[in-house]
Design a protein around this nucleic acid. Structure first.
Length: 564
RNA sequence: GCGCCUGUAGCUCAACUGGAUAGAGCAUCGCCCUUCUAAGGCGAGGGUUGAAGGUUCGAGUCCUUCCAGGCGUACCA
């Protein structure tokens, strides 16, 4: 059910009868006394037509055929149309059912992309969970989603790591703590001239495809990837090894990228480096801003790799759309890459290329989130802390639970809280990571939504009711019921906005409003103590809410407990 | 220098991309558990949306100029 679209169509049909053009501009009403939805488009349409907006709105009302979905439409203010949805229309909702997109696209979602030289840290969190949410939403809407984990598995630092791995004996045990392994090898690299030289030779050997070096490298990558995999599992992120398409997989195509650019006359040698100069990247003064695709020493850069990735994703994967979830600092890089690929014809399927930037994660002091000692926070440590804090709170709130259940709950609640804290904020801005606020579990947090869900489950448990045996739909009567029904019905409008704009926080906001609406209903409309039709329709509404909360949270990659 | 982003209540964030009286949570204060889980609900206070202009029926949102902060800006990713 797409309410905005349906309302827009009806209103725009009335527009057409008045020989007006333009969007009806339907949105959820800004205030409850203005109804459920409002159309703002009459005023701008009237302006274009040189007519009085209020008069025009009046004429439109006469032409408007909408009685089956709206119980009332009123002209208000300078020309707003205030719409109240009819309970009979709301009763046709298939709660929590996700509508399929009219045309299914092949969408490449590029996210997570940790550097395999080190352990995953908080800097990887946003890309990983925001990208994962988008992948889930697009997939649920019937798009063919291809997850691409563009991991950093190539480059000079791997020469150092592989050499150190060989020196210290290539056991998995050695790599148990990837972080200290990296530190040790770096120390060795800085202190030991011989080691440094051998490391540089290893890079050359690796690039040249030397079997032994290659094998050691593969071993290292393998172990590092399994570190990531355990994090993904803990985080409830859908990435698996088959989604890994690291930088190294484009290695073979890099010379061809350069050749193609050369053949098209796009390359210019500047200070020994191969560059592409595009007019749109000149500064006002006319200073040139190159995209360097090959270093003066012959090495390639991430620009080259990303160009190769575009060729692969559009040429082989045949993408209609490619979404990049990387931090905002790379905005210029992607602008350049997209421009070069357009110029060079690398976008072989004419895919829509979209950089979905996000801001930094800051500590309570407003500076990049670090440990007290000033080092980056490992993701494992962050998740440990989240579960620990959740466990403490759970014990406080509900002491009857057995240890096993507390453990399960602290995972669901703790991890959910961390993910939700991130997903619920506007992607593009920086955000403050504050334990106390996040684990307060009040207001717009995952635990609030989970709590609302468990209250619903509790109603069914307590009443001994099989929710599946209930009717799927019902007609709301009392106002709190109707408002809840309006919220439930807006699910797909929200998902559509999320998938086109790439903003998971819209889904979070929606779920929060839904949960709030439910809680109000829960306070005002007794369920189990009611009888007959009243009891049944309230049970149906409660069940619809529960399904929608569960489905929505699942799209965010957050689980729901049955009690807490 | 140039470019991009950000600036909203004491704090953390919204505001559906130009709509009506800028909304939530936290914190503060006052109510509500013999009734389906109080991780909850109801209410109060709290704002010159960084500043000044402009565009128009209408601006937190668009344009200009400032102010403050962050980031980027030729061989890291």
């Amino acid at each position: 059910m797409h309410i905005k679209e349906t309302l827009s169509q009806r209103i725009e049909a009335a527009f057409a009868q008045q020989e007006l053009a333009g969007s009806a501009m339907v949105q959820v009403s800004s205030r409850p006394e203005h109804g459920d939805y409002q159309a703002n488009g009459v005023m701008s349409a009237a302006k274009r037509a040189g007519k009085n907006p209020r008069d025009l709105a009046g004429y439109l009302l006469e032409k408007l055929s909408i009685a089956d979905i709206a119980s009332s439409v009123e002209v208000a203010g300078p020309g707003f149309l205030n719409i109240r949805l009819a309970p009979a229309y709301l009763a046709t909702v298939n709660a929590a059912q996700i509508d399929q997109a009219a045309t299914s696209q092949t969408v490449v979602v590029d996210y997570s992309a940790p550097n395999l030289a080190k352990e995953m840290h908080v800097g990887h969190l946003r890309s990983t969970i925001i990208g994962d949410c988008m992948a889930r939403v697009l997939e649920a809407q019937g798009h063919q989603v291809i997850r691409q984990n563009h991991v950093g598995d190539w480059g000079t630092q791997f020469g150092m790591l592989v050499t150190y791995l060989n020196d210290s004996g290539a056991s998995s045990q050695t790599l148990a703590d990837l972080e200290s392994f990296y530190r040790q090898s770096k120390t060795q690299f800085d202190q030991d001239q011989d080691f440094a030289n051998r490391s540089r030779q290893a890079v050359v050997a690796l690039q040249a495809g030397d079997p032994d070096t290659r094998e050691a490298w593969a071993h290292f990558i393998d172990i590092s990837m399994s570190h990531c995999q355990s994090i993904y599992q803990r985080l409830n992120v859908t990435l698996t090894p088959e989604h890994t398409q690291g930088e190294s997989t484009y290695n073979h195509d890099l010379p061809a990228v350069i050749e193609d650019l050369e053949a098209q006359g796009l390359l210019v040698v500047s200070d020994g480096a191969q560059c592409v100069f595009l007019s749109q990247f000149k500064t006002k003064k006319g200073e040139i801003l190159p995209v360097i695709v090959q270093k003066s020493d012959g090495g390639y850069l991430y620009a080259t790799t990303d160009l190769a990735a575009i060729r692969y994703r559009t040429g082989t994967l045949n993408a209609d759309r490619i979404l990049y979830f990387t931090d905002a600092r790379q905005a210029l890089h992607f602008k350049q890459i997209f421009a070069v690929s357009a110029e060079a014809g690398f976008n072989r399927s004419s895919a829509q290329l979209e950089h979905m930037p996000f801001g930094a994660m800051l500590g309570a002091d407003g500076k990049p989130f670090k440990t007290r000692a000033g080092s980056v926070v490992k993701l494992t440590e962050l998740l440990d802390e989240a579960e620990l804090r959740a466990a403490q709170l759970i014990k406080e709130k509900n002491s009857q639970l057995d240890p096993q259940e507390i453990q399960t709950l602290s995972r669901i609640i703790g991890i959910g809280a961390v993910k939700y804290a991130d997903l619920s904020k506007n992607r593009t801005s920086d955000y403050l990571f504050d334990w106390d606020q996040m684990i307060s579990f009040e207001g717009n947090t995952a635990p609030y939504l989970q709590y609302a869900y468990t209250r619903i489950q509790s109603v069914f448990t307590k009443g001994g009711i099989d929710a599946e045996a209930l009717p799927k739909q019902t007609v709301a009567v009392d106002e709190p019921e109707r408002l809840l029904a309006v919220s439930i019905a807006a699910f797909n409008d929200t998902l559509r906005a999320v998938s086109t704009e790439g903003y998971p926080h819209l889904l979070c906001n929606y779920l929060y409003v839904l949960a709030t609406q439910f809680t109000r209903f829960y306070e005002l409309c007794p369920i189990l103590s009611s009888a007959g039709e009243i009891r049944e329709r309230r049970l149906v509404l409660a069940h619809q809410t529960g399904c929608t909360l569960k489905a929505g949270l699942a799209l965010l990659g957050i689980d729901v407990p049955n009690r807490m």
